[in-house]
Design a protein around this nucleic acid. Structure first.
Lengths: 157, 157
DNA sequence: CTATTAAGGTCAAAGAAAGTCAAAATAATC
DNA sequence: GATTATTTTGACTTTCTTTGACCTTAATAG
């Protein structure tokens, strides 16, 4: 039962224990577990997904890194629900607009943020629609994800 | 961190702290960081671009120098400038990022808004579309335009 | 005026990460 | 035992950084 991926997963989770985040060096970690570097990507891709409540940011090149952060977020969160469950491969504009309105109504985003989301969503309409909806879905999901990630809430005071 | 370029970037920014400008000797600086002189050019070229709000003037030969100045700019004007003049038919991701950083630096948008813009801009990159850049340009322009329109400024904290 | 010296500029190659993808190897399931 | 799903690996790609060899420009000493 000694699946490598499980060990790596555990290891990373322990590193994140206190602060809820960690910065990794892919090659270093791979060396520590004596495995292929891409194994690390596999672990991240299968055990640290957004669905599972993690956000990953990385940079290539000299001084590169992989940063993993755990979202502290109840499943109740509407942003989370939208980003993970509601937005599929395709997303009609009307549905996107409805979501944005709802988020505004719930005071999860403010007016300005709503405007930004709407502008982005609408801009995705023009090219060949076949690809357009996939792009729109991906984009709105990514945008909502950044809002989950954000530490500070949208309310200005 | 721990990357030379970051240290040099920080160093220069500290020198500029008070007056918003600084005059450097390339060789001297390179010596201070024990690196190739052209490393300084690399840092300037990647972290002190016009898009990021810096102007660089230099002179060769005896008594040569490199002068770096940070541009200050009114918020509405910068948005206007970007939306109307800077964003053409095509917009490379790097330039979009630089603009977003600048807007954040000038407190025209806050962290959350910057994240939204970045997510949107990045999402336009994925398919192999040749006109991906056209889409990105159009989208960022539309988003910035909504910020101009908005009445209330982005209050944070 | 010319030669020398003292700057800074350019560019491409090498180095240092991380990403992708699909084939091979295991493990699970029926 | 055969089929399907998951893991592991490795070759190749992309991105960012660092260096070095060579080029251009300006000041100044003869």
């Amino acid at each position: 039962m000694s699946v490598l991926s499980n060990s790596i997963e555990q290891f990373i989770k322990e590193l994140m224990e206190q602060s809820g985040e960690v910065s990794l060096q892919r090659n270093e970690l791979a060396q520590h577990f004596a495995c292929a570097p891409s194994q690390i990507n596999y672990v991240l891709a299968t055990r640290f997904t957004l669905d599972q409540g993690y956000v990953i940011v990385s940079k290539r090149g000299g001084g590169g890194y992989i940063h993993v952060r755990r979202l502290e977020c109840d499943g109740e969160n509407l942003l989370y629900e939208y980003a993970c469950n509601q937005i599929g491969g395709q997303l009609p504009k009307s549905k996107a607009h409805a979501m944005i309105e709802r988020l505004k109504g719930e005071n999860i985003i403010n007016e300005r943020e709503g405007n930004l989301l709407r502008a982005a969503v609408d801009a995705c309409a023009m090219p060949m629609e076949t690809q357009g909806e996939g792009l729109r879905a991906r984009m709105l999901r990514d945008m909502l994800t950044t809002l989950i990630t954000a530490i500070d809430p949208c309310e200005e005071e």
